[in-house]
Design a binder for these strands. Structure first.
Lengths: 140, 140
DNA sequence: TTTGAAAATTGGCCTAA
DNA sequence: TTAGGCCAATTTTCAAA
């Protein structure tokens, strides 16, 4: 892990589909050098994967919410695990602060979101409180 | 925007570097069809870009925090805008719920994080309250 | 790092709906 | 007119030396 690896990571965070050849040109080195470094970074788990950044509203998901969950202490991990099973739950974090678990949840509209929160996710055993913060706009 | 577009999006969210040829094979169609659909999705802003998913701790960022900001109502937008200028601030959202602004902030350690919060970001005009929730683990 | 073969990308052109 | 298919030139990927 050196300066060049960090540069590669920076470039791939900006454009995850940039070709090794392009990165090599940008950093003034060879394509195979870049490819081997990227492969190593992937194997080491530094690069965990690649993803397309989607505008949820453009595919019909008009409600995206950062949702905090408070749980009974001993049910904490099982709640987190259950949350992951929902297709609408895109990300799950454990955290300090106001809530033990934070999740990013996508829903088509307010009705579907409340149905999801009250009738499905809310039914998970061990959840004490749900605190949704609906994202209005992603600025950065 | 049809079923096939949604499938393409799903595939590219799982692996943002998958080749058009591979996607075509998976969906039983031709490479050029995929290519033209992806290009259109990009032009329409459905696909906003691609990114490598990095494990922050593996590149020395041991503190990642979802941080809520309360602002004076009229300074709301300028605060959001100022936040975006910090390299350590990776994402900025406006939201309903407890806080008007939510940001994902990366720091190398607790010391750097508190320095950032108290001495730099905290100095932005219009901020009334900062509520950091440090992410312990990303499960999904 | 270099090299060469295999694979993917790209642009143009054609057909069909 | 638009989406899909086909082909040929170029570029990229990938493994072996």
């Amino acid at each position: 892990m050196d300066e060049k690896d960090l540069k590669i990571i920076e470039i791939l965070m900006k454009d995850g589909r940039k070709s090794y050849t392009d990165i090599a040109r940008e950093l003034g080195t060879s394509e195979s050098s870049i490819r081997k470094r990227v492969k190593k970074l992937e194997e080491e788990g530094v690069i965990k994967g690649y993803t397309a950044i989607i505008d949820p509203s453009k595919i019909g998901y008009n409600v995206v919410a950062l949702t905090g969950f408070d749980t009974e202490p001993d049910k904490f991990l099982s709640v987190a695990h259950e949350l992951c099973k929902f297709e609408e739950v895109k990300k799950v974090f454990t955290s300090t602060g106001d809530h033990m678990i934070m999740a990013e949840i996508w829903a088509k509209n307010g009705k579907e979101f409340s149905d999801l929160i009250f009738n499905k996710i809310g039914k998970i055993d061990g959840i004490k409180k749900i605190c949704p913060a609906i994202i209005l706009e992603q600025i950065k």
